[in-house]
Simulated assay, not measured.
Amino acid sequence: MQDPDIRPLARIEAQVFRVPLDRAVETSFGAMRDRPAVFVRLEDDEGAFGWGEVFANWPAAGAEHRARLLVLDLADLLIGQRFADRHAPFHDLTARTRIRALQGREWGPFDQVIAGLDIAFHDLLARRAGLGLARFLNPDAPDSVPTYASGIHVRGAADTIAACRAAGHDAFKIKVGFDLPADIRATLSLVDGLAAGERLFTDANQGWDVPQAIRFAEAVGEAPPGWIEEPIPADAPPGDWARVAAASRAPLAGGENIAGRDGFDAAIASGLFGVLQPDIVKWGGLTGCGPVARAALDRGLTYCPHYLGGGIGLLASAALLAATGGPGLLEVDVNPNPLRVAFDPFPDGTAQNRLILPDRPGLGITELPESLAPHRTLQASATHKGVQMG
């Protein structure tokens, strides 16, 4: 049945932003030398609109590509379309782009663009309903979610954690996977230095092989961190993950590099993960990741949304966490990123161990902050009249 509040889509727009960094954000597999973001705006034929965000961190040239993909390859499937319900764009676009993605072996980029569109469509409908996005998804959603400070390089982590603690954080995640003996020493030292009630998590970003991952897990076993995230490649055989899990007193975490409901169902059923981390801007949006999160909770796993991008995706991740519930935390990258900070997720004086959801309809965003304009590298849009690129 057609939802009467859903109108035909009349305009899509993608804006790309890049902010140069004085100091790169390092992971075990590479370094980000700028902070990119792709923000998406959908508008229907009555002027109602919604905002979304598309994953753009990797590859380095990916942001502009995602924006062009959205406008040039999906506009014909969007403009003039009147979808049946809030989930229909995700399912319809996934099905109708399958051959396009296969032709260019571009499954990831198509998944990411569709995820951003799904978020924008939900924002549009929540705004039409006059509800915050979390309450649109679940009328009983709370008005805030707990957070943890993320993106902390193991080198210099003590100083960064001290600064995060001063900002109100009480949970921290360090990036390891660089120098195994040094990673072990630093992790043990940092766990030892935690105050009462504080937690430390580790993320290797797929940086180890199985023997290295086992060595780390065993070495920190007497004072295990809250979790060990992606110690080995996400696509490693289940037997490899089982060997690491068997050696670890800390639960294993993963999910940012899993796509598709079948992939998540297999991960949940494996029993190898204690923490599941789907990323709503990489695959699934709210339509795909909501059921995954609920399935994880039903199996006793902790749902912690992965996120390391701009402000729109952060607010959407917070909304889904609030709507889903459970003991999970929202990931808050603490590296410099004006594309996140401009959305003011933590107003002055707010302790950053919780993010208070906006009390305005949808994601609470009407226009993009003016401060972002100097960082725009591309703006592209499509209507029934055609495509504009600039």
Rank of each mutant, 00 (worst) to 15 (best):
P139T: 10
P347L: 05
A75R: 13
P336D: 06
R294C: 11
G313I: 02
A247T: 03
D118L: 08
D279R: 06
A167I: 00
R7E: 08
L276G: 04
I232F: 08
A246V: 09
S381Y: 02
I119E: 05
P338N: 07
A126P: 04
A163P: 01
I214Y: 02
R354H: 14
G104K: 03
P238E: 14
G30I: 01
T377G: 07
P358R: 03
L131F: 00
G168Q: 08
L70D: 03
A373L: 15
A141H: 06
D344K: 03
E222A: 15
G30H: 00
N257T: 13
L131C: 08
I228R: 07
L378T: 06
A269R: 10
L315G: 01
P238H: 10
L315C: 02
A95L: 14
D348I: 11
G254F: 10
F343E: 03
L194S: 05
D192E: 14
S270Q: 09
L74Y: 02
V292T: 15
G62Y: 06
N138G: 05
R18V: 10
L252M: 12
D45A: 04
G328Y: 04
L137D: 05
C289P: 08
P231F: 06
N138W: 01
C164W: 04
S150P: 06
L194Y: 09
A382K: 00
T202G: 06
R100H: 13
A149Y: 10
S28P: 05
H65E: 09
R135E: 15
C304P: 00
R7C: 01
T302N: 07
N353A: 12
I280M: 14
W208E: 06
A322S: 05
G177C: 09
D179V: 11
F346Y: 15
L131T: 01
V38A: 08
A245V: 03
S317T: 04
A48H: 12
V71H: 05
A167H: 03
